[in-house]
Simulated assay, not measured.
Amino acid sequence: MNAPPTDPRGRLLDAALAVLAEDGVEGLTLRAIARRANVSHGAPLKHFPHRAALLSAVATTGFRELTAQGRQAVARCPGDASAVQRLRACARAYVAYALAHPAMFQLMFRHDLLDPTDRELSRVSLSTFDDGMAARVREAQKEGWRQGDDTRLLTGALWSGLQGLAQLWMWGSLPLATGAADVDDALEALLRAFGLNDISPEGH
């Protein structure tokens, strides 16, 4: 079991993560975070200039976790896996993270609650796009998948599809409309719509 952080910022960040997991985004008040960290109500503002800065630090943690989960999924692919198979693994990891951490996933894209000037959040979130999904898309294009498409726009389209699928599934709208009993069925339909069929490394 990891020992709790001794630095005040770390304690507040851990407290915010706990509040988020238990009470959702709407529960992330400075009072609730301070109470969870067992500090005075004004203590958070001694270490973060405003609530948005603290929530941005929380969201940054989420993007780091999402990136790590995607890398782990790709690393678990067989050594002879095709680039398309690695991209499929990355896409599945994205949806899996969203469904496993719905409150964090919501916060990560609640730009009305985050600090738009937070450089670390911008750096980490962009890295999730560039070094995560875009890198996998680029590899797949090199092997022949949608070679004529702009890589960043193609990545954005796939990302939009995965984001929408995850949110609509969490809201209950997608299973209601499609009758899908399992999110994997909906995800497989999305991947096939992009031409990301589960094929062997040799292309058969």
Score class of each variant (00 low, 15 high):
3 A>P: 06
4 P>D: 11
5 P>K: 06
5 P>A: 13
9 R>A: 03
9 R>W: 04
9 R>P: 03
12 L>V: 01
19 V>C: 10
23 D>Q: 15
25 V>R: 00
27 G>Y: 08
28 L>V: 08
30 L>Q: 13
33 I>N: 09
34 A>Q: 12
36 R>T: 12
43 A>K: 08
43 A>N: 13
45 L>D: 07
46 K>D: 13
48 F>M: 07
56 S>V: 13
57 A>N: 10
60 T>C: 09
64 R>T: 14
66 L>P: 02
66 L>C: 03
66 L>T: 01
66 L>A: 14
70 G>I: 00
73 A>I: 03
75 A>P: 07
77 C>K: 06
78 P>S: 13
80 D>R: 14
82 S>C: 09
83 A>S: 15
87 L>S: 02
93 A>N: 05
101 H>Q: 14
103 A>Y: 01
105 F>S: 01
106 Q>W: 00
108 M>E: 00
112 D>G: 15
113 L>M: 02
113 L>H: 03
114 L>F: 00
120 E>P: 01
121 L>R: 10
122 S>D: 03
123 R>H: 12
123 R>N: 05
125 S>P: 03
131 D>G: 10
137 V>G: 05
138 R>G: 02
138 R>S: 04
141 Q>G: 03
146 R>T: 01
146 R>D: 08
148 G>Y: 05
153 L>D: 11
156 G>F: 05
157 A>N: 13
157 A>G: 10
160 S>V: 07
162 L>F: 04
165 L>E: 03
168 L>D: 09
169 W>T: 11
174 L>C: 13
175 P>W: 13
175 P>F: 08
181 A>F: 03
185 D>M: 05
185 D>K: 10
185 D>N: 04
185 D>C: 02
185 D>E: 14
185 D>G: 03
187 L>Y: 01
189 A>T: 02
196 L>Y: 08
197 N>Q: 07
197 N>V: 09
197 N>L: 10
198 D>C: 05
199 I>S: 08
199 I>K: 14
201 P>C: 08
203 G>M: 04
203 G>P: 11
203 G>C: 15
